[in-house]
Design a protein around this nucleic acid. Structure first.
Lengths: 195, 195
DNA sequence: AACAACTTTGACAATACTGTCAATAATGGA
DNA sequence: TCCATTATTGACAGTATTGTCAAAGTTGTT
């Protein structure tokens, strides 16, 4: 490379994710992103062409990390504990110290899924990925005789439920409520009792 | 009244609900609403002051009808069938003939909850109302010995789940997937077997 | 019929946002 | 060191959106 980029792309994308999470896709302007990242608007256009593409870059950056994170959280050999752990950290992430930060992907789905086919595809792929990670863990739980439901159906159900929790967060900002919701769901799921 | 309003408010609000559902709160402009309702932008400003207030009017119009609708759907004396019926019609409404119509309240929550305290309050009240209707039906189910879970926790869980289904709709537009999700949830819920 | 009260209408100003571009600056490689 | 290449910067034009307002229109009431 000859004229090399001055700004740190990793950093810019992380900030973009944060801004999109807080303000939502539509309400976030290129000027917002420029201000918060400290990178001139013109530079952002030069690097990413437009908001849609910048969003796509940020989103794939986010999902790559997120899916790995999810898989890590599900490592506990006890299936019920694994999912409990996962949901607990997800809730904690949603109700982090930063007041107004919501769920990046859920906001994006509600606002940007219709925007263009590329964004729609990214969002679909992400949910598919999430579902697969969950399904695989449920499959393993069945092999371990720790679960007796249908992995595919249950995975797609859990994906929906976590999206729902993200919506609830927007309204109540109440960690306890969100915790109660996922605990209720876990209680109802057909995990088998393990000594 | 002397200078009486020319447009039919009921009709305008219904169209507004439809436009907000399709485009989302932010992407809907006063011009959009003017075009689709056939009412001049100036008249809308005169009647509702601004977009936030117009939205509030439309939203309360929507929720009034929706909560009554929900209560009706839950009339079936068999609790599991009642909830099955409810979720079935909710899914059908989401996947109606109109291609791009999503869930009005869920879109609003993700986009407009932060906008102003009044909107936030309306959204909270709506979810509270929904939860109460569901909780009451579950309470009755317990009295009828058709259900053995906690009504409050289960109601708030079901509110979250339905929001989640609305999010899923945005991505997959797949009625079968949504049906499978709520059926899975119903299977897992502790309804007691009734002869 | 005349009036008061309200609505409708179209025009207007102000602002916000997007996307582009030319000039300038920076930098790795020859 | 010089050059080719890319990034940065600030300005610009174009469009979109909001909100306001005065003029005109409408209608129930007296």
């Amino acid at each position: 490379m000859v004229g090399t980029r001055k700004f740190n792309e990793e950093e810019v994308l992380n900030i973009a994710i944060d801004v999109f999470s807080r303000k939502g896709f539509n309400a976030t302007t290129m000027l917002d992103l420029a201000k918060e990242t400290g990178v001139q608007r013109g530079s952002l256009y030069n690097a990413y062409q437009n908001k849609d593409l910048l969003f796509l870059k940020a989103f794939s950056h986010y999902t790559d990390k997120f899916l790995i994170f999810i898989e890590g959280e599900l490592q506990n050999p006890n299936a019920k504990e694994a999912f409990s752990q996962l949901l607990k950290t997800v809730v904690e992430r949603l109700c982090g110290d930063k007041e107004a930060r919501g769920c990046f992907s859920t906001r994006a789905i509600m606002e940007a899924a219709q925007k263009c086919p590329d964004i729609h595809l990214s969002l679909t792929r992400f949910l598919d990925g999430l579902e697969t990670v969950i399904k695989n863990r449920l499959q393993k739980a069945i092999e371990d005789k720790q679960f007796i439901g249908d992995p595919q159906a249950t995975a797609s159900y859990l994906v929906a439920l976590t999206r729902g929790i993200a919506v609830i967060e927007r309204v109540y900002h109440d960690k306890e409520r969100m915790t109660e919701i996922y605990q209720t769901a876990l209680e109802y799921m057909p995990f088998t009792k393990v000594s």
